[in-house]
Amino acid sequence: MSDNIATRKAYGEALVELGRANPDVVVLEADLSKSTMSALFAKEFPDRFFNFGVAEADMIGAAAGFAVSGKIPFASSFAVFCTGRAWEQVRLVVGYAQTNVKIGGSHAGITVGEDGASHQMNEDLALMRAIPGMTILVPADAVEMKLAVPAAAALKGPVYIRLGRMPVPVLFDGDYRFEIGRAAKLREGKDVALIGCGIMVDACLQAADILKEKADWSATVINMSTIKPLDRAAVVDAARTCGRVVTAEEHSIIGGLGSAVAEVLGEECPTSMARIGLKDCFGESGKPAELLEKYEMNPQDIAEAALGLS
């Protein structure tokens, strides 16, 4: 396994590659280009990079204006600002207007760390899921992010891509296949299905090892990198095979992956399940590892939740 890489870094690099391949790609930013890594694009394509300052609502509106002028805008900021502060702009001129706008929300989740709860966005997936027609991608590592960005550009319509601040292990190799709307089954088991997204996919893989060691359970592990449209068939299939489901996300247990999976199972295949994530609370300042431990989002928490299912 190679060095850890933050998905935001892969996002910035992917934008540069996309910019080289497609002259219609423009990148918009709200004064956080060094953090979202859109600065990499700005350096290579200064004429196609537009900073809007600390004005996320304006940035989203301008992105819609670019989109209806034939451009493919990627608007980046912290997840809390581009999906939270500018939510109603995203709803109207991106969602309702069905404009071809791509939104990159960085510093999502609790592993933002020391900046504290004001900046730890654990509600972005819930906010974006509620908007009709929004595609939502949460790549698990740098390899997947590099595939997700061009896939988002190729898809006509609104896309939200979630980016993380913290360097995370690279899980996939060059053979990894990414397709919007398709879950990736990383391990096949029969006792529990662990369905994760983002950095929690790695935690699910580790949880599967713990379960094997502690209880001789075999776990199916699914990387659900597309939150919407959700791969319903993959969820139902895993639930039928395993009879137990645990979801894991760096997000509130309300409105994100866990909710999406629960909705599908409730309607199609009622299954004993547990949700790992922020339990309807805000985070706080601290080191990412400390926060993951305190808020019970580590591999052992996933494993324990699985073993607690009937």
Binding site: V26, D47, R48, F50, A57, D58, M59, I60, G61, A62, A63, A64, G65, F66, A67, V68, S69, G70, K71, P73, Q89, L92, V93
Partner: peptide
């Protein structure tokens, strides 16, 4: 919201 979208359209025209 409309003026912001106009800003995007105007920037695209310049581009």
């Amino acid at each position: 919201q409309g003026l912001a979208t106009g800003v995007g359209m105007a920037l695209a025209a310049k581009l």
